[in-house]
């Protein structure tokens, strides 16, 4: 089974260390979420995986061979910054991009029709790309990524700019690709999407991997220290708990709150406080922290460590 492995990779641009000793692996049939704030080195890492650039040291291997033109043909890449030739018609554009991936013109044409049909977009075939809406262009771009039936897929923020319906179509296709044992890399900073889709995560900050592993394991590592409440009535108890230093609130709306237990505060302490003040309690749950919290915490620590080192 072909695996993608990034092995102690370094990359600097001039004096800027973009990627520093990064290692992780992505297995077929799984989705790896590559996370990190802006400037964490995600795009630099993806460009080395796609063989657009080469590491200064370390190696990127796919199927146990260093990546190169051969792997580019087995790989589909959807960059964060989308772009197509504005003056080419949809079909010509896609056939051209397919040919660059090594397809014959005939095979490319056939695949273009298949995928346009799948996206119910056959009537755009002869439209110029700049006549299409943003969402339509997104779909065309997505088709360009899948056209040559790649085994390794790299999506950089695939959902940005898509409406909910098309997001669903896209998510279904990504899940279908996982079922057919493709290796999928998914870079994003939208945590809820990562939680929904990914099997593994790799969190980067300041060019380094700060957290890496199976998503469920990672979450368990952070313990069930989070409480979610849904209620009607006064929410004064939340302010009380917070001012006591018993909890830290992650997310809060009129009838719902998500908070982290601090200083080994027992969960029942929150339940008690809530029952004392609210009119009705609909939901109480003790659970693992959401990925976004883990993200904030780990990245915060990494930044602090870097500031201390500097």
């Amino acid at each position: 089974m072909p695996t993608l492995s990034v092995d102690h990779v370094h990359k600097a641009y001039g004096d800027t260390k973009a990627v520093h000793d990064v290692s992780f692996a992505a297995a077929p049939g799984r989705i790896l979420g590559l996370l990190g704030p802006n400037g964490a080195g995600k795009t630099s890492t993806l460009r080395m995986i796609t063989h657009i650039t080469q590491p200064d040291s370390g190696a990127v291997r796919y199927d146990e061979r260093p990546v190169g033109p051969w792997s580019q043909r087995r790989m589909g890449y959807l960059p964060e910054e989308r772009g197509l030739y504005p003056d080419l018609r949809v079909k010509e554009q896609l056939v051209y991009l397919g040919q660059l991936k090594g397809l014959s013109a005939d095979a490319a044409t056939e695949r273009v029709h298949h995928w346009l049909e799948r996206f119910s977009a056959l009537d755009w075939v002869d439209k110029k790309t700049d006549e299409l809406s943003k969402g339509m262009q997104q779909k065309v771009q997505f088709i360009a990524t899948l056209l040559h039936d790649p085994q390794l897929l790299i999506f950089d923020e695939p959902f940005s700019g898509l409406d909910p319906i098309n997001s669903d179509v896209l998510r279904d296709i990504i899940l279908e690709l996982r079922r057919t044992d493709r290796t999928i890399l998914f870079a994003s900073h939208r945590m809820e999407q990562v939680e929904q889709l990914c099997d593994d995560i790799c969190l980067m900050a300041n060019g380094q991997v700060v957290l890496n592993g199976d998503l469920r394991e990672v979450k368990q590592r952070f313990g069930t220290n989070t409480v979610i409440v849904r209620f009607d009535g006064s929410d004064a108890f939340i302010d009380d708990l917070e001012s006591e230093g018993a909890v830290r609130v992650h997310a809060r709306s009129a009838h719902r709150a998500e908070m982290r237990l601090l200083n080994e505060t027992p969960a029942r302490r929150v339940l008690q406080a809530a029952l004392d003040t609210v009119d009705e309690l609909h939901h109480f749950e003790r659970t693992e922290p959401p990925l976004s919290e883990i993200f904030v915490e780990v990245v915060g620590e990494a930044n602090a460590a870097q500031a201390a080192a500097a």
Partner: peptide
């Protein structure tokens, strides 16, 4: 930005 797609091929 289409260049990034092309040079990944």
């Amino acid at each position: 930005r289409v260049v990034e797609i092309v040079v990944s091929s």
